[in-house]
Design a binder for these strands. Structure first.
Lengths: 144, 144
DNA sequence: CAATCTATCATGGAATAACATGGTATTCGA
DNA sequence: TCGAATACCATGTTATTCCATGATAGATTG
């Protein structure tokens, strides 16, 4: 099972029930450290999707943020690291490998009953099938 | 539960009763060391909010002050670390995970009946919903 | 090679526990 | 003894855990 840095790849579409529960794709789960059965998520700052990563990734962001400066030097809010930390949420999955997506996040991504998990290496994204397809079409268009 | 360095993230809005009691969000509590059921707070030096962190972070501030004192005259309020230490207060929460916010701090932050806990990694902030929204709007404006 | 078996995974619902919040009792100091 | 602060208890709500079922893919065996 997962020992070192997680590596998320491929694409999976799973169902979301009325409580907001979704199965995290098994390959995503098995790439996580055995002792950390959780992921961190946040509404993407740039797209209509949910960003996801493991706990160690969030720690790296925390290390980047100089809290002492935040507390003592005026006029430096809007720090990207601060935005990520304040918006992200760490959620653990149950014994069946499911998580519950926060309502607010689902709304941001336009997710209702289906969710697409897209592996991006150290991170992954969660889309609604429709929005994902639209975003991909947009991409292809820009290539021409 | 919490073993390593605390990592505060996400955002929670809780109610403040007439006695000034507020529930510290459970995820914040569980990130604290099991043997330390308390937090340290102080009115922010730079914004209309309350700064919060755990005991180990307060110790780091103290070390900062020690290093500073060796090179300068002690007791001068010019050092931010001195200000932080003298203004901060360590408060423990009850068996239900609630704290009592000092009146003076609530006044500084403009908090009356609701409080927003904002995770920033090693530290967190407590805002009034209105002030927080205003501060965030200010942030976005500065980006343009 | 085909049929079945088995293990893993996704899904649904119900029971259970945790949480936030309000109120009451008790302690401590003035 | 009185008031204020603190600890304790009770309740509704929400979230999490647990159990049961259906589906799928790979392995096994006749």
């Amino acid at each position: 099972m997962g020992q070192k840095m997680p590596l998320f790849s491929s694409k999976y579409t799973n169902k979301v029930d009325k409580k907001g529960r979704v199965s995290v794709p098994a390959p995503f789960r098995s790439t996580l450290p055995d002792d950390d059965q959780s992921i961190s998520v946040l509404p993407s700052l740039v797209s209509k999707a949910i960003e996801g990563f493991d706990y160690s990734y969030l720690m790296q962001i925390s290390e980047r943020l100089d809290n002492y400066d935040m507390m003592t030097v005026p006029g430096q809010p809007s720090n990207p690291a601060a935005k990520i930390l304040s918006r992200s949420m760490t959620i653990s999955f149950d014994s069946d490998g499911r998580i519950v997506l926060p309502q607010e996040f689902m709304k941001h991504a336009g997710i209702s009953d289906r969710a697409v998990f897209v592996g991006l290496g150290k991170t992954f994204q969660i889309w609604s099938p429709e929005e994902y397809q639209a975003a991909m079409a947009q991409d292809d268009e820009e290539l021409m």
